[in-house]
Amino acid sequence: MTTDDRNEAQSASPGTARTTGTVRVKRGLAEMLRGGVIMDVVNAHQAKVAEDAGAVAVMALERVPADIRRDGGVARMSDPALVEGIQSVVTIPVMAKARIGHFAEAQVLQALRVDYIDESEVLTPADEEHHIDKWAFAVPFVCGATNLGEALRRISEGAAMIRSKGEAGTGNVVEAVRHLRSILGDLKKITTADSAERYAWAKHLQAPIDLIEEVASTGKLPVPLFCAGGLATPSDAALVMQLGAEAVFVGSGIFKSADPPRVARAIVEATAHFEDPEMLVKVSRNLGDAMPGAEIATLDTKFADRGW
């Protein structure tokens, strides 16, 4: 199948053939973000705070998940002027969220030249059956997943990075842990499956058999696996990194805390030094109040249930 190549473009300049939009460069940017923190920001000021604190990238959205929960209503892609404002003040990659299935929002974000598009369950879904055909874009996509089947379906649609979903806007890490353990646990089991069992896994996970075969032989996803949804403290970041996340997304956890610049910086340090408890003591001391948390059982809407 040549879907991998559908969006590659040959440059016209003589003698210097360059291909852009390839799977290799899409996944490559995700690989460069490993061990880093990607921070949700709603305006240029927050983006600057994030970059100053050592974020490897920022994620533009119109409201942080905690506010989307509180205020309700339809959550959409950011205003282009806000994305441009953010792009103008930081030098690190700028990502932005589009609604699930809303390929027109994704087209707008690609025209804005964002560095990554997050087809995100945190925004209100635009399509309850289809996700965006991500192969049709030159800009890379990240998608959320609660389990291995969902991750492989998104990869088959062209996602170049997967993030475990967790439950955004709660400050409660329990769902992030559940999803990460589910994805990594099934990856481990599949590596021991025989050829007949791999077909059963494909049916069970509702995932393409070629991707099942690939992860059975490598033991890992073909794209980087990051973690999102409910991380609020440096120790939360260290926990999911030790469980096997390759980088973390932090949303409300920073700008809903008492001291966003310090919390942001502390989470960056904790993610880099995730196996060093002494460092965690140092960066966690006197950080002030973390964002207020929420019990998952009390939620009206679980964002993680969005996605098909």
Partner: peptide, 12 residues
């Protein structure tokens, strides 16, 4: 970032 944003990332 001499070549620009991610859309300008390339192989050669």
């Amino acid at each position: 970032n001499a070549f620009g944003r991610q859309l300008e990332s390339f192989e050669a």
